[in-house]
Design a protein around this nucleic acid. Structure first.
Lengths: 244, 244
DNA sequence: GTAATAGTGTCTATAAGACACTATTGA
DNA sequence: TCAATAGTGTCTTATAGACACTATTAC
């Protein structure tokens, strides 16, 4: 496959002979806490944009990462301690002006995690880490670079996907009740869902199974379910329509 | 916004002090010709993978491109002469092994164009340019790098989108009949669509309008339509289901 | 007239929304 | 008993598939 002259071409090839953009990975990490959809923000401890809020992210480790998903997973682990969850590449952004260091490209990932399986970690790159309610970000946080746009695009992707996939299951702990799942869908969708429709739809899709346990309360106990294949998303052939 | 110390940080920052991946843009350009879905392939005139078939693409021009879409549009123009069409970012790929020059990232775009508005152009980077029928690629072409995977992912995206968007309109000339449009959907979908269902769906969506012309033939002439807003895709709330 | 393709009428099937209903718990 | 939430029965509505039907042209 590799001819003799290709070998010599490669021997003489030096990546630094050309101008290449800076390339990084940024993460929009969603969770649900206190009945609210939240996103992970870090206060940058280093230049550029030192002291500003931003999405967590960083450079590809060329010696360790074997692909972009590994970079994203590494970032997720560094900030949250979580290693598995729904991880999805959303979009890639590039321009000469989005970072003051020059032409830069960032691959944006969206991650969904259950808030009770994690422990937030600051590190040398961030002086503070918070779960910001998504609705507060626009008013209470000024995000560095084009992270406002990236966050909006990821949020929009999540809102779209709640309409035709089972994705929000990844925001819950392993075990959950149908009411909890419905509430999660409603939080993302921003409107209420009719209970019977929701249950029919989810149960007919054959993606969750009863654990046999019951969740007690001062009311009728709810059946506890878990995903049949955790992390896999079901695609429905029809959107949730919402109230008519 | 930019503090005094950030300014000095940037003055001392040299992108070449760090290892950064090679970054490129690759294009999967679809069209329909001879009642067949085809994809544009180029035979590489330069190392690496000289002489192999590949998707058209290349490096970001840091002095001219203002964002990644501009890079993709430039590549599209260089190869086909077309400047406007449906252009959509599909996915970004990165690994140390996908290009022999080292850790590399490529942003993959999908473009849909009408075959009668274009003229294929070879240039110094490609010794040959062809429209390859999508079904022949797997058997008759060995693609360089990971372009086989990229092509499959883009093709899958197109097949998914035909089920719930009006995207295939972008594969036709400005004017078209409903039968031509239906045929286009069927080619991508890989199965027949019931005529009445298709017409109801498309007409109810209010995305095309009669031009007033008729397409003559040795049969009843067909009404000629055009897109109301060319390039914009309609998203249907339900998938095409196909034959029961 | 026929062949061929354009275009319609209308029935059935599927899955969502609406909403009233029953069920089961703790206090 | 009541309050509260879990869970069901069943009617209506919207849109897709099936398929037979009519319409309009060239020859």
């Amino acid at each position: 496959m590799t001819s003799e002259s290709e070998t010599s071409f490669l021997a003489n090839y030096n990546i630094h002979d050309f101008d290449v953009p800076l390339t990084s990975v940024d993460m929009t990490i969603f969770t649900i806490e206190d009945d609210t959809l939240k996103v992970l923000l870090v206060k940058r401890a280093q230049f550029p944009a030192k002291g500003q809020w931003a999405l967590p992210g960083g450079f590809i480790d060329l010696t360790r990462d074997n692909n972009l998903d590994e970079t994203a997973n590494r970032k997720l682990r560094e900030k949250t301690g979580v290693s598995s969850s729904h991880l999805e590449q959303v979009s890639t952004y590039g321009s000469p002006s989005r970072d003051p260091r020059g032409w830069s490209v960032t691959i944006a990932y969206m991650a969904l995690i259950s808030c009770n399986e994690l422990s937030l970690k600051s590190d040398e790159s961030s002086e503070d880490v918070v779960w910001a309610p998504i609705d507060d970000v626009r008013n209470s946080y000024t995000l560095a670079f084009d992270h406002g746009t990236i966050l909006e695009d990821c949020h929009q992707r999540l809102k779209n996907k709640v309409q035709y996939t089972s994705l929000p299951i990844s925001l819950l702990p392993q075990n959950f009740t149908l009411s909890e799942l419905q509430r999660t869908f409603e939080l993302i969708l921003g409107s209420s869902i009719e209970k019977k429709s929701f249950r029919r739809r989810v149960l007919a899709a054959n993606i969750i199974t009863e654990t046999g346990e019951l969740r007690a309360g001062s009311n009728r106990p709810a059946k506890v379910y878990k995903a049949i294949s955790r992390g896999k998303q079901h695609v429905f052939p029809r959107n949730i329509e919402g109230p008519r």
